[in-house]
Amino acid sequence: MDNLLIFIGLLMCGWFFGRRAEKKHYKSIIEREHKFNAIPAIASRFPPADTVYDQKLVAGSTVVSSDYFKSITAAMINIFGGEVKPYEALIDRARRESILRMKLQAKNAGADMVFNIKMETSAISAGKIGAIEVLAYGTALIPPNTNTVIEADNLNVAT
């Protein structure tokens, strides 16, 4: 009986806090996506040849964790098969957040756009922890003669 109560308690916690965190996160993602629309992220390997840009490798990464409710729901869906919606939202959040962090780095470097975007997803399994890491990286193209001060950021590679 005790075990059942704990289980239900955890489930409620996961459902309540997980949903709240997700809503809050999506709100902030959409807000920042509008802000960073000026810096397009382009998956092409070939940069425009007409201007000579300065370049800088930029990257952004996020580790997101599943919540208890999501884990249990996903385990149940797993029995019958089908679309695992709870995890889709989770990975979508991580991906968009990573791209935004990458764009922030690009913006700090005074870039116009980011080329050759590569995305990478990996499962981080620390014991029982169900978490995924999403990394987004690309080359920021900085127009010449901008006097933007390159701020210190997470990946100090432009030396």
């Binding site: 955890l10 996961g14 806090f17 997980g18 965190a21 580790v63 997101v64 964790s65 208890y68 890491e133």
Partner: peptide, 13 residues
């Protein structure tokens, strides 16, 4: 591990 119950970003990682 505790964060894993509530969900959200694992900043430490």
């Amino acid at each position: 591990g505790i964060k894993n119950i509530f969900g959200g970003e694992l900043t430490a990682y």
